[in-house]
Write a protein that binds this DNA or RNA. Structure first.
Lengths: 128, 128
DNA sequence: ATTATATAAAACCTTTTGGTTTCATGTCAA
DNA sequence: TTGACATGAAACCAAAAGGTTTTATATAAT
């Protein structure tokens, strides 16, 4: 439900505190007070971070007795992974050209180098 | 130089405008005014975003005549990729258990399921 | 029944963010 | 040399982010 979320994954992981929270929860479910003990800020502050992570659906909380336990919900990170995968080709190419040349000693590897020119190298109309 | 940067990759990509800038630059080098034409905000605002991306070393700018052209520098995204790779095992496992079972009809796959229990399933001391 | 625990919610505060407008500067073109 | 163009830099501004403290409520334990 609620597709009108205030925080997305990108914003959620931008804060170092929230990344540390995710890391803590990666080892298992934890109540707020337990999580708080790992930081030097108030419980309320941590609760707010958890709320933000919740909105991004990176964590979920359930009430157990008088405490609320949070657990990691890593699924939304797939969006990040997808986003990343688009850019991987840009930095991988420098390596993959080398890889290609090494693995194909018969060829000269010119095609892949030309493709690299298309995207990242200086444009022909450039003034130097 | 300058290892005391104000913005890291996580913060840099948190803003949708900056992500769009990266996408634009993925097609090649562009001057500020060109980039600005793709947004409905002032050139100054875009320049600030570029400055932030610059500090995160996701873009670099060089002066060509009277214009400054920016290009994508995707290398810092490896940090993001590394961070992500840690969490991939948590959401991949659900699939990889299945994959393992399918690909190894002789085994029962119990070990990997036990490991999953260690990290993500309910704790034994839990009150339900 | 009483007290301690775990959290929720609200009010408040300061700094950062994301934007604007204005003015100054360097470069290209006529 | 005189504009036009592309950018840089500074001052300013409103809203959001990241905290705090205070007050209230539900549950557990004695």
């Amino acid at each position: 439900m609620s597709s009108a979320e205030k925080y997305d994954v990108f914003q959620a992981i931008a804060d170092p505190t929230r990344r540390k929270v995710l890391q803590l929860l990666s080892e298992g479910e934890l109540p707020i007070s337990e999580i708080t003990s790992h930081f030097s800020m108030s419980r309320t502050a941590v609760a707010k971070h958890l709320h933000i992570l919740s909105e991004a659906e990176l964590v979920s909380g359930r009430k157990i007795g008088r405490e609320k336990r949070f657990r990691l919900q890593p699924e939304p990170l797939t969006e990040l992974k997808q986003w990343l995968s688009f850019y991987e080709k840009f930095w991988d190419n420098k390596l993959s050209i080398l890889k290609h040349v090494i693995e194909n000693p018969g060829e000269d590897g010119l095609k892949v180098i030309e493709k690299e020119n298309d995207t990242q190298m200086d444009k022909p109309n450039e003034i130097t």
